[in-house]
Design a protein around this nucleic acid. Structure first.
Lengths: 355, 355
DNA sequence: TTGAAAGCGCTAACAC
DNA sequence: GTGTTAGCGCTTTCAA
């Protein structure tokens, strides 16, 4: 590490920070007693303790966290590891995760930091080193690419990890997500119950584990309805709006008789609807569309998008709590299941053959 | 502070963390030399230094930040102070601020933490104490209520503050925002140039400083066009969608001949448009509407909302950089002006009297 | 160019 | 109950 010129000596800047010894002097006791009083030890005279607390308040004394850590009391630190903090189209998810993690961290009086990687760093620094550097005790991972080699390293390390949108779990590691298979199944069953039979799926990129589960749910629903799923009805929209629109055009030419489309994300559903409209098909009159996520925009799209609502705030909340338990109590979890909700709005209706 | 039961001794948990002495032993030098080599002192033999660096890498040694701070090298920490991290309707702004601050903090190798307050804490803890507790060197404030007493205390403290959406500045304090007056003026001038003369304004709550500037811009544009602004044409929508809708109904009954509405936020513009539509007026045929902010939703509302785009990412970027300069170089700023952009979409058009 | 030794502010054995 | 003392892992005088 190079000596950065911006390092000022804070001791000289901050005129006379009040320390434990000031409190001790003022209270006429030793610093040890102050320390014990502050840390809730029982072997301190009630009066003494009260007096000390009074002085602490008076002097606005706040213990130096660094010194505390060094001394022995170390506060646990939870980190959120996210790739490309800014350049994200799912900023809502990240925000929800940040705020929920922050809440949990605060409740448990532990520190919370955000770790982020960008394309440059991505290949240079291992996440494990990153964590060690920041003295991280546990990591919540979100939106990381499964193909990232460092990803696995971190998950296999001794550092507890909770991974959003993940199902596998292992030593010190667990996934947290909604039941993607069941949710997808429910979405398709909704279409089925409306009378649709020619249902396509615009899935996300295969590298995302959840994609496989959503596909599986789609297929299962079809099968249970006596329809053999046909891979040619499944397209990869890579979770991108434009890509989904593109695939919809392809779908329309390959299977013009489609009446229902299940999308693995709302963003893709928006692209699908745009492409549908551009091709002269209206939603839901000609084609019904259901999305996944329930992003804020969803309520406004086409009069309201029928979709699967999953709350990243909830995912963050439960994930972070689990992470804390893993760190402090060595608990182990297989997988944390977060409830979802199927929201019927105005992009799904009975198929109107006649048109 | 009460002793929390979750405190485990990390020294015992983490088996043999590698310390500076390990490096020293391995390199056959004293810890002093290692320290100097790592901190870029010039008085270390090049060979020695190289050998040490090599071993550091080999051993995956990372210096303990706590110990460093205690020792003397303290890294600066910037904080984002935001009220109610989760319960916000402008989560996009907060996210943009978080990511931009994180970026700046990373560039300058300083720590970044998020401070948040909720209704309970709000009245108990002074922000200054909060900052001292976390050893914060500078604060970026966003979305705090001006009427908050602790707010002023922090701004008057010796801790450098940068305040988003703020114009005043003082010792150790500066605001960062777009030129709200000019932007509002431009928005209204757009309406004027289209031929509108009966232009109302749905403003935000007066406690927000920016509201006054936006109003001032509105009035100035009108005046320069020879129209004397009439306070009865200005409503307070409190930056809430529903409130804005409510005020629009009132506006419609009090000034049924209105043809243009300037809103101090997109969220309010959405409420306005809904109310307009509900009252049988279409946008922009009967009434033109312009918003402020350019939230993601704006592009989808009514075929695209005409609005003033302000980038909170940019605000965060510039604000954080300024904060860093204030902290480390004692620089002073009067106000940081961030560019905005007027975006014409489909909610404004020439007034069609005939209707 | 290097090392020994003295802290940084606090906690925690161990005595009193 | 309370004080004494020895570190925590590092930086930094001050000598060598």
């Amino acid at each position: 590490m190079v000596k950065t010129e911006n390092v000022l000596d804070r001791r000289n800047m901050s005129k006379n920070r009040v320390g434990i010894k000031d409190v001790a002097r003022e209270a006429g006791v030793s610093i040890t007693t102050v320390s014990r009083a502050l840390n809730g030890y029982s072997d301190v005279n009630a009066d003494t303790k009260e007096r000390i607390l009074e002085i602490v308040k008076q002097l606005h004394y706040v213990p130096d966290q660094n010194a505390r850590s060094l001394g022995g009391i170390s506060s646990t630190v939870m980190a959120l590891l996210v790739s490309g903090l800014y350049e994200r189209d799912d900023s809502g998810n990240v925000y929800a995760t940040i705020s929920s993690m922050h809440k949990v961290a605060e409740e448990h009086h532990c520190d919370f930091i955000i770790l982020t990687t960008n394309s440059e760093k991505q290949n240079n620094t291992s996440y494990v080193d990153l964590c060690r550097d920041k003295a991280v005790d546990g990591v919540f991972m979100i939106g990381l690419n499964t193909s990232d080699p460092y990803y696995k390293e971190l998950m296999n390390s001794e550092i507890p990890c909770v991974v959003a949108e993940w199902v596998q779990s292992g030593q010190n590691t667990c996934g947290v997500s909604v039941d993607n298979r069941r949710a997808a199944k429910e979405a398709v069953e909704h279409l089925l119950s409306l009378g649709h039979t020619r249902i396509a799926m615009i899935n996300g990129k295969a590298s995302a584990e959840v994609s496989a589960y959503r596909r599986s749910g789609y297929e299962q629903a079809l099968r249970e309805a006596g329809i053999e799923p046909d891979p040619s009805w499944i397209y990869d929209g890579r979770y991108l709006e434009e890509e989904a629109a593109q695939k919809t055009r392809q779908l329309l030419s390959e299977h013009p008789d489609v009446t229902g489309i299940f999308c693995a994300s709302d963003v893709m559903a928006i692209g699908v609807i745009k492409a549908l409209n551009a091709a002269g098909r209206s939603v839901p009159e000609d084609v019904s569309v259901v999305g996944f996520d329930d992003i804020p925009l969803a309520a406004y799209v086409n009069g309201g998008l029928t979709t699967v609502r999953q709350s990243f705030y909830e995912i963050g909340l439960r994930g972070a709590e689990a992470l804390y338990q893993m760190i402090t109590r060595g608990k182990e979890y297989k997988h944390i299941d977060v409830p979802y909700e199927f929201v019927v709005r105005h992009t799904t209706d009975v198929p109107r053959r006649g048109r």
